[in-house]
């Protein structure tokens, strides 16, 4: 009776210590709320503040270091590349990951800008929305505005945002046999999520357009859905 009991306690001790090794700073570094179930009593005491106790503006001045981001992004690309069958697939997956970031960026960015105002506003016209992506979204995500906005001459439903030195690609050199790949598909996903959220559904892709001066210059190509143009025509 005693024997299995003590072995059990040894086991549980070792598993506990390995858990400690995995998270050296303890569980407090995870930002998860303490996963309350539906049936949990509301008045229960909590050991650490959950996500609803935090101030959304507190992080305004504290930024993530570029090297931490570069490291994480390199892992994202490697992880994704192992699980896809081609460049198109890889770009599509990066786009989806970016989309998940973009919808949060949109909500949080607007909250930070508008929550102090009595009557918060949304963008309802396309061009101002595009301008706010060029400046505000870029500033929120990359710390500086993008370099240019262009409108396609041939197709009236195409717009381009140009970044001369995109942050995600700063430490990436694409092998020659994959030269079509643009890791800024991640950024394209962010743009697509923001446009989608504001009610301008579009297909957004990233393309390398290097110049002599800026070898990693990237164009984010926005191809709007027909419904958006028709609506803009009506409200004009």
């Amino acid at each position: 009776m005693q024997q299995p009991h003590s072995r059990f306690s040894v086991l549980s001790n070792s598993s506990l210590s390995s858990a400690d090794l995995l998270s050296p700073t303890g569980s407090s570094r995870f930002s998860l709320p303490s996963a309350p179930s539906i049936n949990a009593t509301l008045g229960q005491t909590r050991q650490r503040p959950n996500i609803y106790d935090r101030n959304l503006n507190k992080t305004r001045s504290s930024e993530v270091s570029a090297s931490a981001f570069a490291f994480l992004f390199s892992e994202i690309v490697q992880y994704t590349q192992k699980r896809v069958s081609g460049i198109n697939d890889l770009e599509r997956r990066l786009n989806i990951l970016g989309y998940r970031v973009g919808m949060r960026v949109l909500e949080l960015m607007t909250w930070r800008a508008e929550s102090s105002s009595k009557a918060p506003k949304r963008e309802i016209r396309f061009l101002p929305a595009l301008m706010s992506i060029h400046t505000q979204v870029w500033r929120a995500v990359f710390g500086r505005p993008a370099d240019a906005i262009e409108k396609s001459v041939e197709n009236e439903d195409e717009y381009m945002i140009i970044d001369n030195d995109p942050l995600p690609e700063r430490h990436i050199s694409v092998p020659r046999d994959m030269s079509q790949l643009s890791c800024s598909s991640f950024t394209a996903g962010i743009v697509e999520a923001v446009l989608d959220g504001l009610g301008f559904p579009a297909r957004v892709t990233a393309h390398n357009t290097p110049t002599q001066q800026y070898p990693s210059r990237t164009t984010i190509l926005i191809k709007l859905e027909k419904s958006v143009l028709e609506r803009e025509e009506i409200v004009k």
Binding site: L32, P33, P36, I51, R54, S115
Partner: peptide, 24 residues
């Protein structure tokens, strides 16, 4: 709105996830 933005920042939440958080 503020509570919703905080919910949204949870990486496990998507725009279509039903909000079941007791804290919310």
């Amino acid at each position: 709105w503020e509570l919703y933005v905080k919910t949204m920042l949870n990486p496990f939440h998507t725009a279509h996830t039903v909000i079941r958080s007791a804290a919310f």
